[in-house]
Design a protein around this nucleic acid. Structure first.
Lengths: 344, 344
DNA sequence: CTGAAAGCGCTTACAG
DNA sequence: CTGAAAGCGCTTACAG
């Protein structure tokens, strides 16, 4: 059996209450006691039982997620995963709150963050936007010692404890490499679709994509079409682009709006269809992959991201280590052959 | 606050001890009491606190992993991940035991399984081998109501609660599709390397691979080279195969022994190098990908598999649900561009 | 500054 | 068949 506080108490001749003070670094303990307790703990190899601590502390931790509202299906997926976890029975003594804010609106996001305080919130996961007001809000949370992780979209320069999401430059590079390999010797133009060049993840994906294409002789990128994650708009822009550029051989959608893109592609005569890489596995993109309209999907696992965010926040609060590798979000590549079963 | 047993007791006018009996389906409670308790629980929306239950039950659960010993680097990785989890401080009240058995030896595996019993073991995760003795051993465990999951290599016909690992037919198909896409219009032979055609996962990968290649005009598979997961042997066989078949344009290693394969490839003049897909991300395969000797790596996450196995066993014991999607092991594809950072 | 005691939500003997 | 009480490993008031 693992040693408990009782064992440490016996071994050190100090009461359990005092040991608890040392353990939690609460003030008001003589150095001598601290030393006695610490040697005893080291000798016995004491490891604190977090779930017992949580039980006795009676107050549950409340984790707040702040994510953008709107039509972006990835964000909707994220919200659904948060909701799933919120309702999950096993997560006792852990409350989850979801705040949705208008997309592309740093001010609104900052206002929500500024409402949070340690009495009602023990940790925050936020899809960050790049705005001064957001940076200030994060600085405020830091000053209150509330742990914060950025989710999906990072702002490295802003104060936060960790980023949970993929490396978007690498994701863009991956898309370009796949497209390049799939095209083989074929030469021509590549059409790019993004939500908005104001969002950091899309900018980064584009950068990575163009880096790789620039090194690939015979291929060039056309200017980015900004579809604002809106299927209709994507459809219209893409249709025009394809008809005015018959030399297009590849297509990369780094944002949402796959539905519009897929409709446009399926209207094209098969011989004129470009090689296509898109982001995010969904019912639509999966179907398009099945039908050969899309050649590969770059994906990130929203469920994994939500669970990782929570684990990281909890570990910060409990001052426990994280498991190596468990919280690294992968840039997943799906072909028609390695799709996960449809239920997930 | 969530309702507790106390609330259910008050609400139903039944003692906590009896409620506990109902909750755990222990015998010796009058039907009337059962009904009263159950309505009260339903009305209050009672959800049991598993970690409190674990705490009070004082006895920790012991999970036994049985995996093959030997040079196979994936199995070594699996062992390392099990060890990591075993030592992880947060997993209180949960003991992990690792048994290594000789590889490719159903009898030895069965003997270890036959030693296990409910007094010393609460659940088993095993890399299954296809042998009658193993089937009987699994049937025995089932008769003892010990939960069992198969890990990495499944035998669907044998009794087990779940399989934790990838679909190997799909993995083979994925490898073939990648190779086919990378080869484009090029025609020729594809060399196949496996550990042993006696192991189910390799048989399945081959099947999937050949299915796809058969549909691809201009490409044909050579007979499988069985390298027994031994780098030296792989190197020798492959060298000979490459020199006697100048028409080889592709190479798929569905087993271990990447080191030998990589050495052989690096000795080849660059113009003669085939397109190469291998399994399992490791230091060696990663380096080969960086250097362009290997074009893609098909991977499964050993850490994820170990954690999932544990979660599934624990959920069976506690009769709790699993989180949708968390325990589905993915067929991961790595190119040079989406490699995870090297520390993981 | 330190410790004894009650309590978190359960389970487990032990009485009745 | 049912219930009161002790205890799991912690934390939290409350005394001293």
């Amino acid at each position: 059996m693992r040693p408990t506080l009782k064992d440490v108490a016996r071994h050190s001749g100090v009461s359990i209450a005092t040991i608890d003070r040392v353990l939690n670094q609460r003030p008001g303990v003589r150095q001598e006691m601290v030393d006695r307790v610490e040697t005893a703990m080291a000798q016995l190899g004491y490891v604190r039982d977090i779930s017992a601590a949580d039980l006795s502390r009676r107050q549950a931790s409340r984790f707040v997620f702040v994510i953008p509202d709107g039509p972006n299906s990835f964000m909707q997926r994220l919200a659904a995963e948060i909701e799933t976890l919120r309702q999950f029975p096993s997560n006792n003594r852990m409350e989850i709150v979801l705040h949705k804010v208008p997309p592309f609106d740093g001010g609104a996001l900052a206002r929500v963050l500024n409402q949070l305080n340690p009495d009602t919130c023990s940790g925050v996961a936020v899809v960050a936007a790049e705005a001064i007001a957001v940076r200030d809000a994060l600085a405020r949370l830091k000053a209150l010692s509330l742990p914060v992780v950025t989710l999906v979209s990072d702002v490295p320069a802003f104060p936060r404890d960790a980023y949970v999401g993929i490396d978007n430059v690498a994701a863009g590079r991956t898309a370009a490499r796949l497209l390049g390999r799939f095209l083989g010797e074929r030469k021509g133009k590549i059409a790019l679709v993004a939500g908005s060049m104001l969002v950091r993840d899309h900018v980064e994906r584009r950068m990575g994509f163009e880096q790789v294409i620039a090194e690939t002789p015979g291929l060039d990128c056309l200017p980015v079409l900004e579809g604002r994650d809106d299927s209709r708009l994507v459809q219209r822009m893409l249709k025009e682009c394809l008809s005015s550029h018959p030399e297009i051989v590849g297509l990369y959608n780094m944002g949402a709006g796959n539905r519009g893109l897929i409709e446009t592609l399926s209207a094209l005569p098969p011989t004129r269809r470009p090689q296509v890489v898109v982001h995010e596995l969904s019912e639509h993109s999966r179907l398009a992959l099945n039908e050969g309209l899309v050649d590969a999907i770059i994906h990130q696992d929203a469920g994994h991201e939500v669970r990782s965010a929570l684990r990281i926040l909890k570990a910060r609060i409990d001052k426990t280590p994280l498991l190596q590798g468990q919280d690294q979000i992968r840039i997943e590549i799906y072909l028609n052959e390695n799709l996960p079963s449809a239920t997930s």
